[in-house]
Design a protein around this nucleic acid. Structure first.
Lengths: 256, 256
DNA sequence: TTATTAATGTGATAATTATCATGTTTTAGG
DNA sequence: CCTAAAACATGATAATTATCACATTAATAA
C-alpha cells in the first residue's frame, strides 16, 4: 500500500500492472487486460483479436539510451510503449540527428513501416528506461486484413501524426530558435508533467537531445537556456529544468 | 487530330478526356472511366462504388490563384486533382505562408480532414489553372464504411505522406537555404518536367511561392537565384527558370 | 494605351545562428 | 574513490539569413 501512494498518479496504472506482473506474470501483461491500449488503435480490437495478439507478443525491457530500431532497418513488428519515452529521429548528413517526434506511453512505434511494408524511416532510441510490447508483423497484418475497424483507427491515427508533422514544418520555418525552445519546454511540461516534489520537468533530456528536438546546435540551445535562466524564466539543476515563469515562455512563443 | 499531336504527352490522357467531355459530357468524365484515379486510393474501388461516387461528384474548373479551401474551414468533401497543381500551405503568425506540399494530377486534397472529421489544417491554392473533381464527404464516408480495401489504401497513402513530411522536417533543420533551393529546383524538374521547346521548368512559381516552399524570405530566395544564375547553374526569363548545370545543383544538395 | 499595382531585383545593414576553441562540471567505469 | 570520458557551459568569431529601403520591370485593369 505504501508503494502505491508514493507513485505519481499519472503513472499509477502502468506501475501497478508492472508490480503485479512481477508477482503473477500470467495475468496482467495480457493484452486483453492491458490498459495501455486505450491510448492507441489497439483499443478497437475485440477479445478474439487480443488473444491472438497476446499469444505472439513479447514484453521487452529497454534501458535508457538503447536503440530500439534504426533508420533503414527492416522491422519485424511494432512496439507498443507501456512505459517510458523514446525519441524518433533521423541522423543527418552532417552527423547530427534531428528529432521528429517524442513518443511515450500508449503510442505505437513502427506502424508506418509495417503498413507500407518499408524499412524504418526513423530511428527509435529510449530516452529513459522503457517497457514495450513487441507485436510481430504477422499478427498486425492479420488484424489489418480481417478487422476493418482497426484499419480505420490506424488511418485516423496516421492522419493525426501527419497534421502534427505539418505543424512542425511550419514551426521550423517561421519561429526562431528561441521561440522553439520556449515552445518545447512548454510541450515537455504539458506532455510529461513536473516532479511533484521539485517542480522539475519529468522528462529529462540531454542538452544535445533538446537541441535535436528544436533543430539547432547544442551550443545554441545551451546559450538560450542560460538566457532564460538569467531572465528568471527557468531554473536548472544539472540536466533538470524547472519552469518558473510559464507566462513569459508562452508570450515568447506568440510574438511576431 | 492536330490538337492531340500538339499536346504535351504527359498531359495527353487528361486533356483528351477534357476535349471529349466538351462534345459528349455524359461519358468521359465518369469515374468508372477516369484514368486519374490510377494515381490514388480511388483506384481500388469497384464499379459499383465508382458509380455511386460518380453520381455525386462534381467537376470544377479552378483558375490560377483561386483558393480551393482555407485553413480552419470545414470541408464538405475531397478534391481529386485532374489537372494543374496546387500549393498546400499554412499562413504563419507573421503573415507569410509556408508551403507544406505541392499536389498535382492524381492527388487528393482534403482526405486528412475528412478522415479525422476535422477542419482543414492547410489552405489549398491553385498554382495554375486546374480541373478537380469534388466528391462529397458522404460518398467518401460510405466507401470508408463499406470498403476495407479502400481504407487500407488511404492508410498506405497517408503513411507515405507522413514519411515525406518527416523528410521535410529533417531537410528544414539540416540544410541551408541554398541547399534547399537547389533541391527544390531539382524536385520541380523531376516532378513536373521541362518545356520541351524552351527547356524551362514546366511548373512556374512566383519567387514568393518558391521562397515559401523552401521556408525563407522572398529576398533571400531571389538573391540565391541570382547567385545560381551568375554561376551558370540556371538561366531565368521572367518567372521561368531553366536548369543548365544539373550536376552542380545535385552537388550542392549533398553538402560539405 | 496608360495608369496603377504587384512582382522582381539589389544594396546596406542588422539579427540570428553556427562553428571553433576551451574551460568546467558531471557521469560512468574500473 | 579515482580517473577518463562525456556532457555542459561560455567566449570569440564567422557564416547565414532576415529586414528595410528603394529601383526596376512586369502584369492588370480602366
Amino acid at each position: 500500500m505504501i508503494i502505491i501512494t508514493l507513485i505519481n498518479e499519472h503513472h499509477l496504472p502502468t506501475s501497478f500492472n508492472f508490480v503485479v506482473a512481477q508477482s503473477n506474470n500470467t495475468m496482467s501483461t495480457k493484452c486483453e487486460n492491458c490498459v495501455i491500449r486505450q491510448y492507441n488503435a489497439l483499443r478497437v480490437l475485440n477479445t478474439e483479436d487480443l488473444v491472438e495478439i497476446n499469444a505472439t507478443k513479447e514484453l521487452q525491457t529497454i534501458s535508457k539510451g538503447e536503440i530500439i530500431f534504426k533508420e533503414g532497418q527492416r522491422l519485424s513488428g511494432i512496439y507498443c510503449v507501456r512505459n517510458g519515452a523514446t525519441k524518433l529521429s533521423k541522423i543527418t548528413a552532417s552527423g547530427r540527428d534531428q528529432i521528429v517526434k517524442i513518443a511515450s506511453k500508449g503510442e505505437i512505434l513502427g506502424q508506418r513501416s509495417i503498413v507500407c511494408d518499408e524499412n524504418a524511416n526513423l530511428s527509435a532510441t529510449a530516452l529513459n528506461d522503457m517497457e514495450v510490447c513487441f507485436i510481430p508483423k504477422s499478427a498486425i497484418k492479420n488484424r489489418i486484413a480481417h478487422n476493418p475497424l482497426f484499419v480505420k483507427e490506424l488511418l485516423v491515427n496516421m492522419a493525426t501524426e501527419l497534421k502534427n508533422a505539418d505543424d512542425m514544418i511550419v514551426n521550423l520555418s517561421e519561429k526562431t530558435v528561441k521561440q522553439r525552445l520556449a515552445q518545447s519546454l512548454l510541450y515537455l511540461k504539458k506532455q510529461f508533467g513536473e516532479d511533484p516534489a521539485t517542480g522539475d520537468l519529468t522528462l529529462v533530456l540531454s542538452r544535445e537531445d533538446l537541441a535535436a528536438a528544436i533543430g539547432t546546435a547544442t551550443e545554441s540551445c545551451i546559450r538560450l537556456l542560460s538566457d532564460f535562466k538569467k531572465k528568471g524564466y527557468i531554473t536548472t539543476q544539472g540536466k533538470n529544468i524547472k519552469i518558473i515563469q510559464l507566462d513569459a515562455l508562452e508570450e515568447l512563443t506568440k510574438d511576431f
